[in-house]
Design a protein around this nucleic acid. Structure first.
Lengths: 192, 192
DNA sequence: TTTTCGACTAAAAAAACAAAATAGTCGAAA
DNA sequence: TTTCGACTATTTTGTTTTTTTAGTCGAAAA
């Protein structure tokens, strides 16, 4: 009752490495069970099915990222700084994750839909994080945005594009790229 | 000698519909041949292999798009207008194409790499088109951009994100979305 | 000379089937 | 409350055979 969550945590933690190496499909419950020193059927005491184990792994990863983002944002005191910190931190973390889950990366390119199923859950979260920053900027009289919702969407879409860019391995992005992007976002390209 | 191009055109034109229906993999040379009223082996007189037929189909499609873009741009006389026309036209055309090549769309999501192989050829083209617009804007003293190359990339990345958004069918974008995006691109979100 | 085609081959894909692996259930025991 | 072994029902894998398909070639038609 009190330990069930702990056990779930432990399983997820260990399963993480296996999923990372073999991807979702090629990871078996047997393997996970062995690594946790349990019988396979015991896993089903903690999780309903394989997908739920995977879900738990992702959730943990999301928590780590969430904290990183929170921390990065809180260390900045201007909305611009926060936005920059958010994007840079996010990109870096995603790169790391893509690196760690090397097998999953292949599955990503091959079976885009599958991963998206899990990701979409966090889209809302991301949205509100950015909205919050934008609103703060507006309240402080720093930003001038007539449609926060749409602007947020524009930013998210751009981040998605960035992600794809990185995932394809076409280019190695730098913070400079992000700064350039932000320069446009902040000031636009029109001559003042 | 003079007709060979005409024949290629005809084959590509007819193959287009078949590829659209069945995608690349499930389209057979036999089918195409039948539709063109030729023996399968005759196709190989005009094209080296199946991929070249597909290539030709894409090339035609690209030409159509190119012309549309050219026309749309030339009808505008401000750099802002041109940029807007470019993006709107591009998005509309892509949407239409995605609709027409319904089978290909599935292949796109499943086998992203394959389609990308053909697309990447046109990335350069797209890049220079946008650079040209931006430079014109700079020359006219309308835009103020310190790194055209990077700004162009930022725009392209954003368009890629937009594309993904649309392809997934998550949202039906409107011109309003584009305008909002452009509003940011032109003026940024900072208070003046 | 240019274009078409039927007959052919080699490779790939599909079908059929058996064998193995795996996700998930269940009741009983620790 | 937690663990597990034995079981089942699906999937996956491996193998062999058959069919389909991409691509070649030389000969005939235009």
């Amino acid at each position: 009752m009190i330990d069930i969550e702990k056990a779930r945590e432990e399983i997820a933690e260990i399963a993480r490495d296996i999923f990372a190496k073999f991807g979702f499909k090629k990871t078996t419950m047997e393997e996970i069970a062995k690594a946790v020193n349990k019988a396979k059927s015991s896993l089903y005491y903690y999780f309903q099915n394989k997908e739920e184990v995977f879900q738990a792994v992702i959730e943990r990863e999301a928590n780590v990222l969430r904290e990183k983002l929170q921390k990065a944002i809180s260390q900045e005191n201007t909305p611009q700084g926060k936005l920059r910190a958010y994007i840079v931190t996010r990109m870096k973390a995603l790169k790391q994750l893509a690196n760690f889950y090397s097998a999953l990366k292949d599955e990503y390119l091959e079976n885009y839909k599958f991963i998206e199923k899990f990701r979409s859950k966090y889209d809302e979260e991301e949205k509100s994080a950015i909205i919050q920053i934008l609103k703060e900027g507006i309240d402080n009289g720093i930003f001038e945005i007539n449609n926060v919702e749409m602007t947020t969407q524009a930013i998210l879409i751009t981040l998605k594009g960035f992600e794809l860019w990185v995932f394809q391995g076409n280019t190695k992005w730098t913070e400079k790229d992000v700064d350039n992007l932000l320069e446009i976002l902040f000031y636009g390209i029109m001559k003042k």
